[in-house]
Simulated assay, not measured.
Amino acid sequence: MTRPFRFGVVAPVLTDLSTWRDQARRIADAGYSTLLMPDVPQWQPSPVPTLAMAAVETDLRVGTWVYASPLRPAWMPAWEAHSMSVLTEGRFEMGIGTGRPGIEDELRELGMPVTSPRDRLAQVRETVERLRDLDGADLHTPVVMAVRGPRARALAGDVADTVTFAMLPGDTRADIERLARDFRAVRDVELALHVPVVGDDVAPFMASPRDTHPAELREADSLAILPDDPAAAAEEIQRRREEIGYSYVVLGAGCAERLAPMVAALAGT
């Protein structure tokens, strides 16, 4: 099954509110489908109220990219996600994972218990189960899971509507293609491609600029980078759908306007 392309933008509030609202409207006007917010306490406003504002300002879908499961008890993101689905009339997507690299240090700084990866994954399952209970028979909040290891992939096969594979700096195209092929042999779901680098620009909320080197990514033929020329980027995105199955592409806000011609050409096709 070839799914139509859609494009999301991770757009945290890094400016004054008026400028951010204007940015959200431009993202909508350019043909992007989804505005996404990272889950990094103290760096920015909390994701859900910010996404609620974006949903009022535009007709975009909105979502978390992604909730870190150890930061909240399972019932809380489930309640928030269900509430957002109701209030946006079905335009919310709950992205969830076990936390960014370094989540253990973040938990210590917040005075929270540092749980094991297995426990954090169990909390993801509980969150989705609680969300399904709240949604009931008449609502289905889409769940996007960020996964890497075999346990996370197995859980995503059970509960996710969309899957993105957490990429490591040394991952080649072949490494991720193998993950995608093995996963889709179990279940055919929408695959989301997280692209933190366009040209030489690194999206700060999607990767660590200090540890991300565009030249090395190009050398490794990494899927974490796209050319900054819209026509070349469009050609590469089409190749990634054909060869791997990626149809949902998530970019940083800093390159959203630059790659708008690519989105205009491919969205919905």
Rank of each mutant, 00 (worst) to 15 (best):
M1G: 13
R3W: 10
R6W: 14
G8A: 15
G8Y: 04
A11T: 12
P12S: 08
A24D: 00
R25P: 00
R25Q: 09
R25F: 05
I27Q: 02
I27K: 05
P38G: 07
V40R: 14
P41M: 11
S46F: 08
P47F: 07
V48I: 13
M53I: 15
T58W: 06
W65H: 08
W65N: 10
W65L: 06
M84D: 02
E89Q: 14
G97L: 01
G99L: 01
G102S: 14
E106T: 11
G111N: 15
P113F: 11
P117L: 08
R120N: 14
A122G: 13
V128W: 00
D133P: 00
T141V: 09
P142V: 07
M145T: 06
V147M: 08
R148T: 11
R153Y: 11
R153I: 14
A154K: 15
D158Y: 07
F165S: 05
P169K: 09
R173V: 11
R178E: 12
R178T: 11
L179F: 15
L179R: 12
V189Y: 09
L193I: 09
H194L: 07
V195R: 01
V197A: 07
V198N: 01
D200A: 07
L217W: 03
R218H: 06
A220Y: 11
A220K: 14
D229R: 07
P230C: 13
A232E: 15
A233V: 03
Q238D: 07
E242T: 05
Y246S: 06
Y246A: 04
Y248R: 13
A253P: 00
A256C: 05
P261N: 03
M262N: 04
A267I: 09
G268V: 12
